[in-house]
Design a protein around this nucleic acid. Structure first.
Lengths: 191, 191
DNA sequence: ACCTGAACACCGTTCAAGT
DNA sequence: ACCTGAACACCGTTCAAGT
């Protein structure tokens, strides 16, 4: 059989992804190497290429996995302000769960953004906020970028470097407040 | 003399920085390698280490150079809204001038942020906007992170992927409008 | 079908030796 | 003082060969 050098089990794509995700969480995207990953799985480096096209493809897959863990607010009729705030918190939570991966996502367009539910939650609630159709896409993009910028900065300690996490929590609420106030003020909300 | 393999001139730190910056602008931070840089300068790779501590140190220096090119709005009494908008445009301009470097700056805290004039411009104008002292630092950090997030997203084409640059210009104005409206609405401006 | 070893073309950096 | 060649410990990936 072709399972030789390994302990017993054959190599599974699932196993590769999970181990890779752990390595990225521990040592950053740069810290992941195919050779280290193979060593961790007790396998020849080249065996990985039977389950994965390239390192880039592997990381893209990790991003998709992480994006699926976003806990999006349901469409249950709660005020748009609350839903948008909840979305912000969800993004921030995810970013803290997988900081290195989040940083990668933020600077690689092909990852999260495209088909994800984030877009739907934003659209739905911005409509409720009275954002005109002509500005809808632009506002979605701006808001997503804002929150991305915030949590990225927080992860890199470019934000909140003068105090502990409580202070950053407060800063995040203020940041969300500013955005929500801005949205309310520019348009007449449909509530 | 110790200038041998090179054309005529000796190697200067200035020359190294400028060539490195060009390489980064052309091929990204990952695209810069000490060996390529040396080849470009027609010099042995190891000669570089006489002028520069490490690749990391070199890149930090490049970030500082780029940050100095920020065209900050002067303190001339124009309304805080206009100054903040101008600051946003300045950041966006810089990000477009050196996209790869900007992306690096955004995810490496030790680069721009610390002593830069950005901070002063923000503080001055947020005070004028009536932001209370207790929220000043938080608001500065949030605003800087917002704009960073936006221009990073734009550089990575995570934003404005459905249209040309004109549309992104408009999206940026909308984004700034939301923030300025939010600032105006949460506090009574001192104008 | 799945795994592997050797090899290729790269890295950043150290160190001892040259002028 | 400044430069260099050889060497070390890494990379991602291809390719032909094994079972």
């Amino acid at each position: 059989m072709a399972v030789s050098a390994r302990r017993g089990r054959a190599l599974s794509t699932e196993e590769i992804y999970l181990t890779a995700l752990r390595l990225v969480d521990e040592g950053g995207v740069d810290g992941l190497s195919m050779r280290k990953l193979a060593a961790e799985l007790d396998v020849n480096p080249m065996s990985l290429y039977h389950h994965v096209d390239s390192k880039t493809a592997l990381i893209s897959q990790l991003c998709a996995m992480a994006a699926n863990r976003l806990e999006l607010p349901p469409d249950d009729g709660t005020p748009w302000q609350d839903q948008l705030r909840a979305l912000g918190h969800a993004e921030r939570r995810l970013a803290k769960l997988h900081p290195a991966l989040w940083s990668y996502i933020s600077s690689h367009p092909e990852s999260l953004h495209k088909e994800s539910g984030v877009w739907q939650v934003l659209t739905r609630n911005l409509l409720a906020a009275g954002v005109p159709a002509t500005e809808l896409d632009a506002t979605c993009e701006a808001l997503f970028a804002f929150v991305s910028g915030f949590v990225t900065a927080e992860n890199n300690q470019t934000i909140g470097f003068r105090a502990g996490t409580e202070d950053v929590d407060r800063t995040f609420e203020i940041a969300v407040d500013i955005i929500l106030a801005g949205l309310s003020h520019r348009h007449s909300p449909a509530t």
